[in-house]
Design a protein around this nucleic acid. Structure first.
Lengths: 136, 136
DNA sequence: ATTTGCACTTGCAATATGCAAGTAAATTTC
DNA sequence: GAAATTTACTTGCATATTGCAAGTGCAAAT
């Protein structure tokens, strides 16, 4: 799949090597909103990722330390995915992407509210959200 | 190529539809640093984009209003590419990506300096950089 | 008039994606 | 307790995208 060679030591390039595709950040998004997700939860997301791509992205992101697998308390058949600290640290990136998209595209109204709150007091919003994400 | 269908009205998804691949943000990066670039300048960048991919990305980003083409003052054979306001507005995204990468990867020391400056006073740094980018 | 530089295009092989169907273990249902 | 269902994947194959190398056409320099 994705061999883990860096293309350069540019931070943008490094980042794209890790999550620069059409799906990885959507998985991260789901985890940021829901905190924990099962494989099936990701499949249910609106964009319709196909199951083989989902499996390959989850594996790559686990190998790159963005997410981790946990055993589900309810059942051995289920797996819980969760963000690591490295994954949680993508929050500011996700929020700035949202701010940009909100300026130029029609986006979901719930997310518009988040953007508005964030813009009002970026540092404060980040601090509170990070605290919340780290909780579990 | 890239048909311009939205996958959903999620801001992350919208954004990825526009620049979510391994190359677009590197082109944006070059333009943010150099302000103006020719086709040949992009080809010379460290990551080694191939010429057909470069052409397709430039076209897509022009169609999506991130960049624009200008005639080169020196020669009719040359073309200058420049960021539009929409492209310039990706600056906070680029900076937060850099902050993330700087935390987890070994990055170029010049970029480390930029990250350090940005983190010291985000709003101030942004304001100054935006002003500088809009100048030309 | 010929060569060089610049911005692309084209052809083709290699890789990645998307869809549909399949598998294996764990759980639920009868 | 056997059979059906749920869950997390894997496999096969068609299609789309990428990457490499070579080619084209116009402008400018020699």
């Amino acid at each position: 799949m994705n061999n883990n060679q860096r293309r350069s030591d540019c931070p943008i390039s490094c980042s794209l090597d890790v999550w620069g595709d059409k799906w990885s950040l959507l998985i991260i998004r789901d985890l940021m909103f829901a905190k924990q997700c099962t494989y099936g939860d990701f499949l249910k997301s609106g964009e319709g990722i196909s199951t083989n791509i989902l499996a390959s992205r989850l594996q790559a992101m686990e190998e790159n330390g963005l997410i981790e697998k946990l055993s589900h308390p309810d059942s051995k058949a289920k797996v819980l995915y969760r963000l690591t600290q490295k994954g949680i640290d993508l929050l500011p990136v996700m929020l700035e992407i949202s701010v940009w998209a909100e300026k130029y595209y029609d986006i979901d109204k719930d997310r518009k509210v988040v953007v508005k709150e964030y813009k009002k007091d970026k540092e404060g919003f980040l601090k509170a959200s990070l605290k919340e994400l780290k909780k579990v």
